[in-house]
Design a binder for these strands. Structure first.
Lengths: 158, 158
DNA sequence: TGTATAAATGTTATGTTATAACATATCAAT
DNA sequence: ATTGATATGTTATAACATAACATTTATACA
């Protein structure tokens, strides 16, 4: 687990995500317009899920967008291209922790600190699960709500 | 996979779910009031997810409830006690396919026929996933969207 | 049997999340 | 420059959900 729960150098964490997305957009011919980039930055400010209207408020503060569709469009762009994830349980959005990998993430929502972490091993797992019933998966949502190690104040070997 | 996608004797399927829930309520001292029972019946009419307002409409037709909180209360009761599940991806609800077992279901949403099936093997799986990061899971959501075997028109051994 | 307590229901009002539909502007290629 | 595609601006409304408080009904037990 790429541990966003643990203390880390968040500035470089943000910077590297941003750079990676910029590169990915360049490579894939995607337009990381001002609203889109700012939306990503907003999500990157913390490892928390933000609702579309939270994002909209911040975009509005910056004079970049002031109506729901604008925020939803930017968020949908990010989600579609794997630069952010929608957290179904929260009707909210998180920046992707490793936007370059093609992945179906499992999301880990700490109900205490409200941070959301992500792991990538979900896809194979879904395939395995679906095999029995002959179900062919397009998209898979795996979200756990609970408490992270940091919030439980426990050591790693308990 | 308890295959709700495949043709089956739905009347007996419904009846047995209903009986099981009635028994469970009796055993656990829960009150399966008219609105609650009818709500369950409504969900049991098909293996489809229904939105709270769809349910409300039907309850209203029956003169049992006519305001949002009434439907939400009944639905929440069913969900809390494991007699129905909330489908996060759809903001909707399905009757539980095996309401007696204590389970964390994985839900299988066919985007073609819109039926929702359920399997029970999710819990262990979540535990395994969370172990690495020391994350302690309270609730786990696993939902796959895709196409069922029936809708793909494929044989079982492809 | 009356009364206390808890549980469920009824009701108003509003909060929150999301999109349809259509107009306008900008970009990218020829 | 023209065109076609993409993105943005805007209005309006749809869809989902709950807070807060009043009233009724069930249940327990004095």
């Amino acid at each position: 687990m790429q541990n966003v729960f643990a203390p880390h150098d968040h500035a470089s964490c943000t910077q590297s995500a941003l750079t990676t997305v910029e590169r990915a957009c360049a490579e894939r011919g995607l337009r990381l317009t001002p609203v889109r980039k700012r939306t990503l930055e907003i999500l990157l400010e913390g490892h928390h899920a933000l609702g579309a209207y939270d994002v909209l408020q911040k975009l509005s503060d910056d004079g970049l967008a002031d109506k729901p569709p604008m925020a939803y469009r930017a968020l949908n762009f990010l989600v579609e291209h794997g630069f952010a994830h929608r957290v179904e349980r929260l009707n909210a959005y998180v920046a992707c922790a490793h936007p370059d990998a093609d992945h179906t993430p499992a999301l880990w929502i700490c109900s205490d600190c409200h941070k959301v972490a992500e792991t990538a091993q979900a896809a194979e797992l879904g395939q395995r699960l679906g095999q029995d019933g002959g179900f062919s998966i397009n998209t898979l949502t795996i979200e756990a709500e609970g408490s992270c190690q940091q919030c439980r104040g426990e050591s790693s070997n308990d």
